[in-house]
Simulated scan of single mutants.
Amino acid sequence: MNDYSWPDGGQRLAARSREAWRATVEKLPVGTAIAGEVVGRQPFGIFIRIDGVPDAVGLAEITAMPREATLPPMGSRIVGTVTSHTEHNHQVRVRLGHW
Rank of each mutant, 00 (worst) to 15 (best):
M1D: 15
N2S: 15
N2I: 03
D3Q: 14
Y4T: 00
S5P: 06
S5N: 10
W6M: 15
P7R: 02
P7N: 04
D8Q: 12
D8T: 15
G10S: 10
Q11W: 13
R12W: 09
R12Q: 15
A14H: 05
A14D: 09
A14R: 02
A15L: 10
S17M: 04
W21N: 03
W21E: 06
A23Q: 14
V25Q: 14
E26R: 15
K27H: 08
K27G: 07
K27I: 03
L28N: 05
L28P: 09
P29L: 06
P29V: 01
P29Y: 03
P29W: 03
T32S: 11
T32V: 01
A33Y: 09
A33Q: 14
A35I: 01
G36C: 05
E37M: 09
P43Y: 01
I46H: 05
I46G: 03
I46T: 12
F47M: 08
F47P: 11
I48M: 04
R49P: 00
G52N: 11
G52I: 03
P54C: 06
P54E: 09
P54W: 07
D55N: 13
D55G: 06
D55Y: 05
A56P: 08
V57Y: 01
V57L: 15
G58N: 06
A60T: 01
A60Y: 01
I62S: 14
I62W: 09
T63S: 13
T63C: 09
T63F: 10
M65L: 15
R67Y: 08
A69K: 08
A69H: 12
L71N: 02
L71V: 01
L71W: 01
P73E: 03
P73V: 00
M74K: 10
G75V: 07
S76N: 10
R77T: 10
R77W: 03
V79A: 13
G80F: 04
G80C: 04
V82W: 00
E87Q: 12
H88F: 08
N89W: 09
N89Q: 11
H90M: 04
H90L: 02
Q91P: 02
V92W: 03
R95H: 08
L96Q: 12
G97Q: 10
H98W: 10
